[in-house]
Amino acid sequence: MSILLRCPVCYEALRSEQKSAVCKNNHRFDRARQGYLNLLPSNKKRSKNPGDDQMMVEARTRFLNHGYYQPVVDALIDKLKSFGNEASQRILDAGCGEGYYTSGIKEQLKDSSVCGFDIAKPAILAASKRNKAIEWLVASVSELPLMDEQFDAVISIFSRSDWPEFVRVLKPGGHIVLLTPGQNHLMALRRAIYDEVRPYPEDKRLQDLPEDLALLESQTIHHLMMLENTQAIMDLLAMTPHYWHVNAGQNSNLSNWVSWNVNWKCACRWYKSTTHQHR
């Protein structure tokens, strides 16, 4: 069950043709040697190299590969299994980064069709090395190069959401799983950086929830991790936006810590589509 792609130029369906994807208007997109498709035209980028850079991607890859966020993967898989039709599910990971969560889902739900996309090309390059059975795309969340009403589930993990686009590609009755930082997420890290630390606004994304989505349930995922070396501490810092707020003195203090206990707490919510409002 293949993922149905849409041309980012004219919005017609894309068909596979050798190592390319082509629409009826002959807009052609070649697959990279690593297997992914770049479906983000240069005229739709807000910068030359949008998204995470190579340094952040490498830090995230090293850190996540140690399994610090495995409880998130486990919770996502349990929830996806509860939706039923495991063998025939199409799953979209919106803003997949370097593919840690996406690959974990595919490894557990082997018969599902999984697509992951991110706006950052370095992230998709890294993701392509994780699992060749996933459709990897360079794309923007605000204009998904995907055909309508095909996904059973859309997941968004610490990433930007676009409710209208999520609803458009979701099957009627499909689910959206949204995971955001809990109010005290990575509090120890934030206290080491900022003079004043405010709780994350957990309900921020609910303010613009469309009428055709209904909140079904919320869950908190809480975990304590022990970072036992400087590399892990610095990788955690580098994979977050907090990295850009650290001055030289703080950076030195953090890098001199030998070990660190870090609590993190995530808010996981899932929604079910009711009606569709096509554009």
Rank of each mutant, 00 (worst) to 15 (best):
K19A: 10
N85V: 08
N251G: 10
E149F: 09
N26D: 04
P172Q: 14
R62H: 01
L137F: 06
I91C: 05
S218G: 15
W260G: 08
L37S: 03
H175K: 15
Y101Q: 02
Q207W: 07
N184E: 13
A188L: 03
T274N: 13
G99E: 09
P122I: 02
A94T: 03
P210E: 01
A75E: 00
Q219E: 13
L76S: 09
D203H: 09
I157S: 05
D74H: 09
L76G: 06
F83T: 04
D111I: 12
L209Q: 06
E149K: 01
S142V: 11
R90L: 08
M225A: 05
S20E: 15
M225G: 03
T220K: 15
F166V: 05
R6H: 01
K45Q: 12
N49H: 12
T275E: 14
I221Q: 04
I77V: 11
M187L: 15
H242D: 14
V114K: 00
E143F: 05
N263H: 07
A127C: 07
H242F: 06
A87L: 14
F83P: 00
A59E: 04
M225E: 01
V258Y: 14
S82P: 04
E58W: 06
S128D: 04
S259I: 03
N263F: 13
N251D: 13
Y36I: 02
V73C: 04
W136V: 06
S252W: 15
P145M: 07
L5C: 04
P41I: 12
I233S: 06
W136K: 05
Y271Q: 02
Y68T: 07
L189V: 11
Q34Y: 03
L170P: 02
